[in-house]
């Protein structure tokens, strides 16, 4: 591991008319990470990846892939990337799948023909089909072969399992794990199915309304978010400050809250407020990440 960042953005902002799509996003994707970008629909996940691919121009800020500016040195930057877009629009709709694969392969000196054949087979692609006639799921599978086939150092995957049936979904994730074992790759993957990446992901970024509200490693995330089992006196009221952190009193003697913040500090604050913390349980990665989407977070 070189320890640097494979993908970086510096204060990326993007507006569509009055809508703010991205607001000062500073992405740091470490070399070799499997970085999952989560957020509700419209939070800015796809826009972030499009800016990295220079398919969208940011209004402010810059982005780099392996130190290459994605605008000024766009072609070189994109040569490092395998990209699965949100909507599988290949252009070249008249081509056969086989033809499109050959066409794309010609652009990449690193194209691995036997590997691309194996992937096509594993995904059950019918190579004699015309691109225009593919279903959403088939398009997505073709897109994955095109992205992985040249074994790029960076993969940008926008909802890669969207539109796939459950069997193909889990096969896709297994293939990604194999790909990682064979080829050193940095993966930035946007999804609203974070649970299926539970054991593959090692970094998480959370986008909310265009802002990156959290970005941390798996360990850090699991240290920062906990499930608190707390005993409270009848009729106990949370202070305003604790309410903001996600504490809700519901008139029972025992309560459970998922809270974000330094564990010791939170326990002190709760104790001071008259609550008794019985247990703090760590959460699985997906649940911990979702905590950032569920309520206001004090930072």
């Amino acid at each position: 591991m070189s320890g640097g960042n494979a993908v970086t953005t510096h204060g990326i902002s993007k507006r569509y008319g009055r809508e703010t799509a991205l607001d000062g996003v500073n992405l740091r994707v470490p070399e070799g990470a499997v970085y999952v970008l989560v957020g509700a629909n419209g939070a800015g996940k796809s826009t972030t990846l499009k800016v990295l691919m220079n398919l969208e121009r940011a209004d402010a800020g810059t982005a780099e892939i392996h130190g290459l500016d994605t605008v000024r040195r766009g072609p070189e930057a994109r040569a490092q990337v395998g990209y699965v877009p949100e909507r599988p629009d290949h252009g070249y709709r008249w081509m056969m799948c086989r033809g499109l694969l050959k066409h794309v392969a010609a652009y990449y000196p690193t194209w691995d023909h036997p590997y691309a054949d194996r992937l096509s087979l594993a995904f059950g692609l019918r190579l004699d089909r015309q691109v225009a006639t593919l279903s959403k799921g088939e398009s997505r599978r073709l897109q994955l072969v095109l992205a992985l086939g040249h074994r790029p150092p960076v993969l940008l995957l926008d909802e890669p399992t969207d539109g796939l049936d459950p069997v193909v979904r889990s096969r896709t994730l297994s293939l990604l794990a194999e790909h990682l074992a064979d080829t050193p790759t940095t993966i930035l993957i946007s999804t609203h199915h974070i649970h299926e990446l539970e054991s593959l992901a090692d970094h998480v970024g959370v986008l909310r309304d265009g802002r990156l509200v959290a970005q941390m490693s798996r360990d850090e995330l699991q240290r920062t978010v906990g499930r608190y089992r707390v005993e409270i006196p009848m009729g106990w009221q949370a202070t305003r400050e604790l309410q903001v952190a996600g504490v809700r009193a519901n008139g029972v003697r025992e309560a459970q809250w998922t809270l974000v913040g330094d564990q010791r500090e939170l326990i002190d604050r709760l104790t001071l407020a008259g609550a008794h913390v019985r247990e703090v349980q760590p959460l699985a990665l997906a649940d911990a990440a979702l905590a950032f989407l569920e309520h206001e977070v004090t930072r």
Partner: peptide, 15 residues
């Protein structure tokens, strides 16, 4: 192998 087990468990090969 690391490859087989990561694929089977869908776990990061590093893990």
């Amino acid at each position: 192998s690391v490859r087989e087990l990561s694929s089977q468990l869908v776990v990061n090969p590093r893990t």
